[in-house]
């Protein structure tokens, strides 16, 4: 029935497993060095400091300043976190501490669906709903004339996209807090809100920071949805109603022409390398917060 005998099958299966494992563990290093090697053409001629802090982006005349894109990315990401962090935290506390299990059972599929919606669809929804809302109502409310395609629109769409991601981690963290801790606080006469404020939140703090950090890293690298609503104008944004440009959008928008201008492809690969470095850095730090949380 089998062509190979048991020993041979064991050998084949084991090698298949080990080769796969090697491939997977080497993947991040491949990514890192692949993109690094590609960006060396650029780094050969410019210093990293100049690239990151110079403001002019004119690839045709050899000027590669990433500053507007980095600033745009940071604005969009921080603003999105500002919107999403309180909502996620309050919701996570509510569904794990106050309501019955049934609410959590409704929330889980809702979170799954939110997480499953592709980013292009989020972008399309942003164009349909958020962009007109900002240009028609929110902008005039503050006395600002805006197209709607703005840092604010991108931040808003982004803040919704990362809700499922952050909320999932937060719910896990609140659920893993031992019941005894709560009971001890309650038995000492604390009200439920006091228990949450002074015991549960304190215990969960490293976990909460980690959840927000993971969300931040995720938001920083989000491409399509942001690209569709952020406006894609290379300039330093003056306020949140201005259009902007982000690093991932830069890469995605210019892949077509990058082989026609010298060092352009290398510049885009450098942008990808920056994204990778930021993502790895944040995830690394947040991992230590999680480890710290698990230790107590």
């Amino acid at each position: 029935m089998y062509i190979l005998n048991r020993q041979q099958r064991h050998f084949v299966n084991s090698s298949w497993m080990i080769i796969s494992l090697l491939l997977v563990t080497l993947l991040p290093f491949f990514l890192f060095f692949g993109l690094y090697l590609k960006s060396t053409y650029l780094l050969h001629d410019y210093s990293v400091f100049d690239l990151i802090f110079s403001k002019t982006w004119k690839p045709a005349s050899g000027q590669f300043g990433f500053y507007p894109f980095i600033v745009g990315s940071i604005w969009v990401t921080l603003l999105a976190m500002l919107f999403t962090a309180p909502v996620c935290l309050l919701t996570a506390i509510y569904v794990t501490q106050y309501t019955r299990k049934i609410v959590l059972r409704i929330m889980h599929p809702a979170i799954d669906i939110l997480a499953g919606i592709p980013s292009v669809v989020y972008g399309l929804w942003g164009i349909l709903v958020i962009v007109p809302f900002i240009s028609k109502y929110l902008g005039p409310l503050f006395g600002i004339k805006t197209m709607g395609y703005s840092i604010l629109a991108a931040a808003f769409v982004l803040s919704i996209m990362i809700i499922p991601f952050i909320l999932n981690i937060l719910i896990e963290i609140f659920r893993s807090i031992p019941m005894e801790l709560k009971e001890a606080a309650l038995s000492l006469g604390a009200t439920q809100w006091q228990t949450i404020k002074q015991v549960i939140l304190k215990k969960a703090l490293p976990g909460i920071i980690a959840a927000f950090g993971f969300g931040l890293a995720r938001a920083f690298g989000e491409t399509m949805a942001v690209l569709m609503v952020v406006g894609n104008v290379v300039k330093l944004p003056g306020n949140i109603f201005d259009p902007g440009y982000t690093l991932p959008a830069l890469i995605a928008n210019n892949y077509g022409e990058m082989l026609s201008i010298p060092r352009y492809d290398s510049a885009l690969m450098f942008a990808a390398f920056l994204l990778l470095a930021v993502s790895l850095f944040f995830n690394l730090i947040m991992h230590f917060f999680i480890v710290k949380y698990n230790k107590y």
């Binding site: 494992l21 997977v24 563990t25 993947l27 991040p28 491949f30 990514l31 692949g34 993109l35 590609k38 993971f214 890293a217 995720r218 920083f220 690298g221 989000e222 491409t223 991932p248 890469i251 995605a252 892949y255 885009l268 690969m269 990808a272 994204l275 990778l276 993502s279 790895l280 944040f282 995830n283 690394l284 991992h287």
Partner: peptide, 24 residues
């Protein structure tokens, strides 16, 4: 360590995979 490495890789934005795939 393997799980940690996988979580790191999971967090990498898809545009970076796109760029890497292009170089590959």
């Amino acid at each position: 360590m393997v799980r940690f490495l996988l979580d790191l890789v999971w967090g990498i934005p898809s545009i970076v995979y796109g760029a890497f795939g292009f170089t590959l």
